[in-house]
Design a protein around this nucleic acid. Structure first.
Length: 601
RNA sequence: GGUCCGGUAGCUCAGUUGGAUAGAGCAUCAGCCUUCUAAGCUGAGGGUCAUUGGUUCGAAUCCAAUCCGGAUCACCA
């Protein structure tokens, strides 16, 4: 009964449980899983998993050899379904897991396309990501945000959480007014429709024009003797933008209608990009809605004495006792600052979803901001505060350094996606393996491969680290890439198309598992734990690395061992099941990254 | 200056609740396609894990200091 139970568990917990039980019986001492480590055995030694004995020696008053021998003996004798043999090298007890166990892992799961996914739990998590400004198109940095946010939401879903994906549109403020003013001054009524330019790019162009005009005006004013600082403030186009912000806040009809029209253009453009890259949201929030609630909460906090007013009427909070600074919450003219609307948004989200956790996928340059936000929400006694979690990610840099708007080194999201798909098409055509594909099938394949390469390249880096985006490397389709993983999937499916596995077949234990057969099953067995790890760490790169591992091991396996012309019917059925389960796990893992896998490529 | 994050092969990255001789990919070199997809496989070379000290059976991993890089400390968002 007990051994059956252990056999049904994941292998590491199974080993831990067996060790604890054995030690209790051998030495009448109760250990916990924290008291010893179970690692995968290094390839140069015999065995599959290793119990590190050092930490147990003192409490049990045993020598490494004595403990290893009695523990190894006991484990193998009492758990014949789990362990087949052991050896001891220094303080390491190497255990060979029985082929029965691995055969069961394979046979019990190989057809299950939901393998690795957990039962639904009752926890609700809000994942906010993307969060664009509505004055310019998305760039490379946004792509990292979108890919991370979408993927982490899927990973948490797989882990059993109820997920709500949200997006806050930063749709108001001085930056929005800048593109509006520039349009009024320079557009002569042009529209995305009249020019054929995608809406977000169209509006972004006017944002750039604002900057150029502003620069000119500043120069003129400085030539007249103004300081740089004064010139920047006094430039006519800047004055116009500031006036427009005031008019916007006052609800001036002409300004509001222009704002709506131009934001509408941007949203149309965003929608196209989001659809291409696979971002979607369950709920959109708009800063133009949330900032008023934020202001109200600031008033409340003022009344409660949590905030204070300075002589000039600006509102602040003193966080010096918490090791931070004083932080402004409302300008002296009564208008909202950035954090004001975030307080409102936190409350909005909590009221709507009563979340257990609220994740914000936002760059690490805002670490301080989110520390402050959480602290303020706590001090206001908002129930939303506890769940606030900033999923902070590092900046994306180019080999030449940071992307800089002024130097025109910003990599546009639409451009890079176009380029990836284009090159994917060229490389695919070069290989000439899909000449029988119809036009629309080819188009879909190029999309799948190109976009996958981009997502994989960006997601393979630990989110919290900043990363270098090398366009040439990202566009490579060999080695540690999405194409490699996709290729492995297509290869497995090609074998299975030739001959499907016989589901009724009973695998025999007479032929021992070969190294590569066992290696791949060991890897596949880890998948549920890998999802849990990625979820706990909020880290899709865990999945990326795992998918690559599986693909690499599978490629070695397929090169080394014939599947359809195997040595025996038993080996053929075993290997067909390995192909099936590998394909399922690759498809499942890649899906968690937002990456599709093609049947052929 | 205060706070936070990072530094692993020529380059890009894994590995950090302390475990055996630190791993991949790219790039370089040498092999492998009448055999289920060569976007592949096999092998070689490449390392003071920033530096110094400490903790212990054992440190890339933990602690301290130093050096280097980045972020942030706005009435910007």
């Amino acid at each position: 009964m007990q051994s059956f139970k252990i056999q049904e568990m994941a292998v590491i917990p199974g080993i831990q449980l067996a060790v604890i039980k054995a030690l209790e019986e051998l030495y009448a001492q109760t250990c916990s899983i924290k008291d010893f480590q179970v690692n995968q055995t290094k390839p140069e030694f015999e065995g599959d998993y290793t119990v590190v004995l050092f930490t147990l020696l003192k409490p049990l008053k045993q020598s490494p050899d004595a403990l290893g021998k009695s523990l190894g003996e006991k484990l193998v004798n009492t758990n014949p379904h789990l362990f087949s043999s052991y050896n001891i090298i220094k303080g390491f007890l190497n255990l060979t897991i029985s082929d029965t166990y691995w055969n069961n892992v394979l046979s019990n799961n190989y057809t299950d396309i939901n393998y690795g996914r957990k039962e639904k739990n009752a926890k609700k998590i809000v994942v906010e990501y993307s969060s664009p400004n509505t004055n310019k198109p998305l760039h490379l940095g946004h792509l990292r945000n979108n890919f991370l946010g979408w993927s982490i939401a899927e990973i948490l879903k797989a882990e059993g959480y109820y997920i709500i994906k949200t997006c806050i549109a930063n749709d108001r403020g001085i930056h929005i007014c800048k593109s509006m003013v520039a349009w009024q001054w320079f557009a002569n009524g042009a529209t995305p429709q009249s020019t054929g330019i995608k809406g977000d790019h169209f509006v972004g162009d006017y944002y750039v024009m604002f900057g150029e005009q502003h620069k000119k005006e500043v120069k003129t004013l400085m030539d007249k003797g103004l300081s740089k600082e004064d010139a920047e403030k006094e430039a006519p186009i800047m004055k116009a933008a500031q006036q427009m912000l005031v008019d916007w806040e006052a609800g001036k009809p002409g300004v509001i209608s222009l704002w709506k029209i131009m934001n509408g253009w941007v949203y149309e453009g965003f929608e196209v990009t989001y659809k291409r890259i696979g971002s979607d949201f369950d709920k959109m929030y708009y800063e133009s809605d949330t900032y008023l609630l934020g202001k109200k909460l600031v008033d409340d906090g003022l009344k409660k004495g949590i905030f204070f007013k300075k002589e000039d009427n600006s509102v602040w909070i003193d966080l010096t006792a918490d090791g931070l600074d004083e932080k402004i919450l409302q300008r002296k003219d009564g208008t909202a600052v950035y954090i004001t609307q975030d307080i409102g948004l936190a409350v909005n989200k909590y009221e709507e979803f009563t979340y257990d956790q609220s994740i914000y996928v936002v760059g690490d340059e805002q670490n301080y901001h989110f520390k402050v936000l959480k602290l303020i929400c706590e001090k206001l006694g908002l129930p939303s505060s506890e769940g606030i979690y900033h999923l902070s990610y590092g900046m994306v840099e180019l080999p030449t350094g940071r992307m800089k708007t002024r130097e025109g080194t910003v990599v546009d999201a639409d451009d890079i996606v176009d380029e990836m798909i284009k090159v994917a098409g060229e490389k695919t055509a070069e290989l000439g393996k899909v000449k029988d594909f119809a036009e629309d099938e080819l188009k879909k394949l190029y999309n799948t491969i190109g976009l996958a390469a981009l997502k994989f390249f960006i997601l393979r880096v630990d989110p919290k680290k900043r990363m270098v985006f090398n366009p040439e490397e990202s566009i490579d389709f060999h080695g540690f890439t999405a194409s490699f993983v996709q290729f492995s999937y297509a290869r497995a499916k090609a074998i299975l198309r030739n001959e499907a596995e016989d589901k009724a077949y009973q695998l025999s234990l007479a032929e021992p598992l070969l190294h590569l057969e066992k290696d791949i099953i060991i890897l596949l067995e880890k998948y549920p734990a890998i999802i849990s790890q990625a979820a706990a760490e909020h880290n899709p790169s865990v999945i990326v690395n795992y998918c690559y591992d599986v693909a690499k091991t599978f490629n070695s396996f397929v090169t080394e061992h014939r599947v359809l012309k195997a040595e025996s019917e038993n080996k053929k059925q075993l290997r067909l099941r390995i192909c099936r389960m590998t394909a399922n796990v690759i498809a499942s893992g890649m899906a968690l990254l937002g990456i599709e896998v093609p049947e052929r490529m």
